[in-house]
């Protein structure tokens, strides 16, 4: 199963990111994870939120260019070698990772979560499931 990441275009100028988080905060959108890719002139904010529909509506109204991207969320036990094992599975399955980022486990303190942007989410999810590694479902995001 894949989950939805919201990707947003922001200029790399003072206050641009603050403007974005301000809009989200004002509409009570809860951020679960956030990562930023940037050049000297612009950046792409990638985020996982509790309510995708609300967040995209709010962003559209505020004039942000954004897109929805399917990503794979994986719970990683907070033990040495946890991430290594997941990467091993994806490597064995020849799933190409475009980028990834982590967030800590919300109420579930024993887990960290990794978000993977891969070429083929279905293949990644299947390979992980075959090795007993659970991936996040969209419905589960809100309660994390």
């Amino acid at each position: 199963m894949s989950i939805k990441q919201i990707s947003v275009f922001v200029e790399n100028t003072p206050g641009a990111l603050y403007g974005l988080t301000g809009v989200l905060a004002q509409h009570q959108v809860d951020l679960r994870a956030l990562s930023l890719a940037e050049t000297s002139e612009f950046g792409i904010v990638r985020m996982i939120v509790d309510n995708v529909y609300q967040a995209t509506t709010v962003l559209k109204d505020a004039g942000y260019v954004h897109s929805l991207t399917p990503v794979v969320g994986v719970a990683i036990p907070d033990v040495p070698g946890g991430l290594n094992r997941v990467l091993q599975v994806l490597t064995d399955a020849k799933v190409n990772i475009e980028y990834m980022y982590a967030f800590l486990g919300g109420k579930n303190v024993n887990h960290a979560y990794m978000i993977f942007r891969v070429a083929d989410e279905a293949a990644a999810t299947a390979a992980l499931a075959a090795r007993g590694i659970q991936t996040l479902e969209q419905d589960a995001i809100a309660s994390l």
Binding site: S7, A37, T39, F42, I44, V65, H66, S67, T69
Partner: peptide, 15 residues
């Protein structure tokens, strides 16, 4: 100006 059509989450592609 960036447009929804030209935007993607992939930095390499935008560049």
């Amino acid at each position: 100006e960036m447009t929804p059509e030209m935007f993607t989450d992939n930095m390499g592609e935008i560049e």
